[in-house]
């Protein structure tokens, strides 16, 4: 086992474990903190896949901006564990069984593929900031500019919806 295999297994265990803990936590603040751990694990996977730009953007955008927004909302609402509504255990069991069977079917479908496609670690320069910046500002410059309009409309929409009356 090389160092990449070991770090892949460690990061995968970290991602799956924090995802499960996120679902199981009663307190919403704990859920958000576990989700931040999950995002850091996914950023580690991006570094392992030689996608350095996306790793940094994932940390800045998700763990930095979006999760702080979630934390602000949860703390403004002053939610605590007993405000969680009463659960229907039968529905939960059905949901877990259906999700588990979906996972089982999808996993068994991909594991029947015989041929192996290796994912080379540190191969090529596709994920470097230089390459991505060139592609973003030549081939994808129109979608990039349109996304700024999207952000503006999202900002106006958030203010209008969040305004009192």
């Amino acid at each position: 086992m090389g160092i990449t295999t070991i770090s892949f297994i460690l990061l995968s265990l970290m991602a799956v474990g924090s995802g499960i803990m996120m679902i199981l936590s009663k307190n919403p603040v704990n859920s958000i903190l576990w989700l931040i751990v999950l995002f850091f694990a996914i950023s580690g996977h991006y570094i392992l896949l030689n996608a350095q730009f996306l790793a940094i953007v994932n940390i800045i955008v998700y763990a930095g901006a979006i999760m702080v927004l979630f934390l602000f909302v949860v703390m403004l609402m002053n939610l605590n564990a007993e405000s969680e509504p009463a659960k229907n255990h039968r529905l939960q069991l059905i949901a877990i069984i259906s999700g588990g069977s979906l996972l089982l079917i999808l996993l068994s479908a991909i594991m029947t593929v015989k041929e192996a496609h290796p994912v080379m670690v540190a191969a090529g320069n596709a994920g470097l900031i230089k390459t991505l910046g060139k592609v973003l500002f030549t081939d994808y410059v129109l979608p990039f500019e349109i996304s700024s309009v999207l952000f503006l409309s999202a900002m106006v929409g958030a203010v209008v919806i969040g305004k009192k009356d």
Partner: peptide, 29 residues
Amino acid sequence: MDIKAYIALSLTLFTIGIVGVLTRRNAII
């Protein structure tokens, strides 16, 4: 690493998301 390992990890995370959407009733979660 083989691509199958990444597909399996990604499917597991996706299923965790699906089970969370189905089981939790807190809108933020």
